[in-house]
Amino acid sequence: MWVTNLKIVGVVLGTLALYTLIANEIPQVQSEVPQTLTLGTNVTPEQLVAAGEKVFNGIGGCTTCHGLGTRAPNLLTDETGTGPIGVRCGKREPGKSCKQYLFESLDNPTAYVVPGYQPIMPVMTKQLSPEQVWAVIAFLESQGGTVDVTASDIPSTTSTASSTGGGGGGGGGGLAGGSTDPKAIIQAAGCLACHKLEGQGQVIAPDLTHVGSRRTADSIRKKILDPTSSIAKGYEKLAGIMPKTFGAMMNAAQLEALVQYLAAHK
């Protein structure tokens, strides 16, 4: 009987294995979450490199060929004694700096093909947004070289329909696109859904029109970062309603601008 049992187990496992094998044989396409990479004007090289590494290993699909194989040059490790890409990129084409060379390889890959390789690389500037492209360049430069990509390299993009959804975003953006205009921050954070300010907004929470006379700048800052730290008289029932997330949504400059703006409302 155990022979029969083994046979049955074999048939079942064999069928499962066959189906799994077939599904793994075909090219694998994963449906990624569309991500808009927003890099502000004051983006640091470290932020660019970090974002570029993500693109390189993820949505860019670079590692399919630029891994350890023979399809394309290795970028992160030594290649025929010339060092990783950051070291050799400036010496590939005469007259082209490292940055120019890397951008050309992504924008027009067939313009210069490293000897010994086939011109099989797709045009990456069509697949990636300018921010992603420059982040990748910064990442590649960081592999043994110095990063000289700055925010001014990234062409300002008009927002197109292809960039749907917020989806987190990266870098040090902050509310309202990083703007330090307090009115824009108040607008974007939705403060007026509860607070009243200069005659606008709801009356659920304390009126902020004269908040500067009641609280110091330090107290306002503390209140925004940790809303339960102090509760205005008469509003005890509503304690905990104000979201604790505003501190994480703003960058320091924005928070400071907002605090000073409110503190000036005496």
Binding site: I26, P27, V29, T70, R71, I120
Partner: peptide, 9 residues
């Protein structure tokens, strides 16, 4: 390993 680009959908 080959130099051909991997088949893609």
């Amino acid at each position: 390993t080959t130099v051909a680009a991997p088949p893609n959908l």
